[in-house]
Design a protein around this nucleic acid. Structure first.
Lengths: 203, 203, 203, 203
DNA sequence: GATGAATGAGGTTTCATTCAT
DNA sequence: AATGAATGAAACCTCATTCAT
C-alpha cells in the first residue's frame, strides 16, 4: 500500500525504485537494508521515498505482494482456472516448471523470498497469522488427488505437502547455486517429478 | 572461540548466557539481535559480555559450532563409523531420524539454523567458503549408492542431494510448525522414506 | 575532506562548528576530544556532525589543513615568491614575524598545533610519512645561506634547523603564555634575531 | 604518591611496573593509555594495580616526578651546589650536556616529557599552577648573569629563557629523531653553545 | 596482598524518519 | 511534489575502577 504519489509516478521511475529496493533486499536482511541506499541507487531523494511509502516496511510489503503476483503470473492461466480437470501430477509439473522459470528469470528475487520464508516474524507481519500458503496449496491438491485415487492412500497429505514445498525450495536453490542452468531444465523437473511420482502414486 | 573467562564460568551461568543468546537469535536476525538484550536476559552487565566474547559475531560463531556439534551428537555413532557397511536407505533413515530427534529436543535452535542457512553471507563468514556441507554429504552418499547399484542409474546425484537436503528442512519445519509431534514420529519418517525410496531405488 | 553538506552550509554555521571544534581540540587531546561536546557547543545534533564529516579524524584533518593554509597566509607573498633574492636573515625575520602575528591573532590554534607536533603518530596520519616539513624548510634555507657565505661554515645546518624550529615554538609559547604581548612585538623578534644572527653569521 | 603497598614491593617488580607504564605512556597519550595494557605487560593483575596506585593519574604523576628526579640526577652535583661560583655559559653547557646524556640514555622518556609539556591542562594537574619551572630556572640564571655583566644588557631574560628552554627541546628532538647520535655529542653541544654564546654575551 | 571477573558510564557512529524550503 | 539537511534514539564496544574471593 504505497501512497498515491508513488502510483502516479511514471512507470520508469517506479521501476527504478523497485529495482533498487530488490537489489538492496537481495543482499541485506530487512533490518540491514538501508532506505538511504535504496534512494541513492534509485536516484531519488530520501525525502521522496517517504512521500511514496509510509516507511521501510511499507515498501517491503508492497514488494512482497508484487513478487507473489509475479510468481503467480508464471503459472499457466489455463492450468490455474481448470485445476479440477487436470491430473495431479500434471499440475505438479506445471507448478514446478513455473517455479523454475520464475527462478531463472528473476534470480534476484530468490534470496528475498528465502529470507522472508525463514523469518517467521517478518512473514507474519506481512502475510498475517496463517503461516504458509504454499504448503496449504499443496495440501489441498494432495487431498483432492487422494480422493480421486491418484495417490497412495497411505500418504499423509500434510507431510507430503511439506515435502513438496521443501522441494520447490531445493529447486530454487539448485538453480540459484548453479547459476544459469543451461542444461535442459525440463529434464531436471522431469527427474524430480519422476522421483516424486514414484514415491507418491498409488501402486 | 569465546575467551577463557567464559569457559571458566560456572556451568549454570554459561547456560544462562547461551540460553539468552539462543532466545535472541531465534527471534531476531543476526543484525537485529541486540547484545544488550542478551545481557539483560542473562542478567549480566554488558561489559561482562565483552569479557566473555570478542564481539557479537564471536558469540554467534560459538553458538553455531555448538549447534553443529549437538546435531552431530544425535547421529548414532555406530552408523557414523561404519557408514560403508550399511545400505543407503538405512543410512538415510538414520539421518532423518537423528534430524527429527534433534529438532524435537531443540526446537529453539531450528529457526537459528534456518536463518543461517538462508543468509549465505553469514554462512560463509562462519563456515568458510565451501558453501553447503549438508548437500555434499548427501551427494557423496548418493554417488556411492549409485555405484553399488542401490539406486536408479538415471538419477542425478547432485539434484537428488538438493532434494533430500530440502526435505530435511521440510521435516524440521513440519516438526516446528506442528509443535510437539506426539504421533509416532517414526511413522512420519517411514512415510517420507517410503516416498523417497520408491522415488530413487533401482527398478 | 568534509562532505559537501558541510561546505554548502551558511558560513555562519560552518564557523560555529569550526569554532566549537577548535575549542574542543585546544583543550583536549585528539582522543579525549568528544564529538558530542563539539556538537553541543555548535548547537547542532550529533547526527548532523556525521552528515558534515566522515568522522572525528576527518574534521581534525580538515582543521589542520585549514590551520596550515592560514599560517601560510600570514607569510608575505613577495617574500615567499622571491625567496632567492633576499638575504637569509631577512627571510628569517619574515618567518618569525609572520609566526608571531599568526600566534597573536589565532591564540587558540597554538595548543592544537603544538599537541599535533608532539604526537608523531597523529602527525603522520595527517601529513604523511615525511615527518617534519618545518625543519626541512629551515634546513634548506640554511644550506643555501651557507653556500652563499652568509653563515658560519662551521654550522651544521641540520642542527641549526632544529634549533630555529625550536625557537619558533618558544616564540609561540612566549606569546601564548604571556597572553597579549602589548609591548612592541617587533622588539621581541629583533632581539631573538639579534641573538640568532650573532650566533650564526660568518665572522 | 603511590600507596605503601607499591613502595614495599621488591624493586624488581616495581621496575617491571614502571617500565610497562613508560612503554605505554611513550606510545599513547594519557587518555589513550590503558591501565589494562600496563598491567598485562608488567604481568600483574589489574586489581593489583589499584592496590599500588590510587588511579591512572596517580601513577602518571609518580612517573613524572621520577622522571624529574632522574633528569636532575644527571646534573653534576658539584655544579648544582655551587651554582653561584660558575660562569653562566659553563652552567649552560652543563645543563645541555646533562640534558643530552639524559635523552640518550632514556629515549623512551622523551616522548612522554614532550607530550606532557604540550598538554598544559595535564601539566597543571601534575606540577600545579606555576606553569614552567624549566623556563623559570633559566630566567633566574640569566638574570644573575646579566647582573654579573656576563651577558648583553639589552637581552630580555624572559625571552631568552624561553629560547633556551625551546632549544633544550630541539636538542632532545634532534637526538630522538636521528636515533643514536654516534658522532661526538659534545661537538653538537659545543656548536649550540657557540651559537647561543655569540648571541647572548656582552660585546 | 593478589587476583581477575564484574560493572556501567560514556564514547563513536548509524540510520529511519521528519522538516523546512 | 521534490529535495536533502536535521534530528536523536539506539547500537556496539571500551575501559577505569570496584568487588568478591
Amino acid at each position: 500500500m504505497p501512497k498515491d504519489t508513488f502510483l502516479n509516478l511514471p512507470k520508469e521511475k517506479q521501476e527504478r525504485i523497485i529495482d533498487a529496493a530488490i537489489d538492496e533486499f537481495a543482499t541485506h536482511s530487512f533490518h540491514q537494508a538501508r532506505v538511504t541506499a535504496i534512494a541513492e541507487q534509485a536516484e531519488i531523494a530520501v525525502g521522496s521515498f517517504y512521500q511514496y511509502f509510509e516507511d521501510k516496511m511499507d515498501l517491503f510489503k508492497y514488494l512482497m505482494e508484487a513478487v507473489v503476483q509475479k510468481k503467480i503470473s508464471y503459472i499457466n492461466r489455463d492450468t490455474m482456472e481448470n485445476k479440477g480437470k487436470y491430473p495431479f501430477f500434471q499440475l505438479l509439473r506445471e507448478a514446478f516448471s513455473s517455479g523454475i522459470r520464475f527462478a531463472k528469470e528473476n534470480p534476484r528475487l530468490l534470496p528475498i523470498g528465502l529470507m522472508l520464508m525463514k523469518d517467521k516474524a517478518l512473514y507474519r507481519e506481512i502475510f498475517g497469522e496463517h503461516v504458509d500458503k504454499g504448503i496449504d496449496f499443496f495440501r489441498q491438491m494432495l487431498e483432492e488427488a487422494k480422493a480421486q485415487g491418484e495417490i497412495d492412500p497411505a500418504i499423509d497429505p500434510r507431510l507430503a505437502a511439506h515435502m513438496i514445498a521443501g522441494m520447490t525450495f531445493s529447486l530454487s536453490d539448485f538453480v540459484y547455486a548453479d547459476g544459469k542452468v543451461d542444461q535442459d531444465d525440463m529434464a531436471i523437473i522431469d527427474q524430480m517429478l519422476y522421483i516424486v511420482e514414484n514415491g507418491l502414486k498409488k501402486k
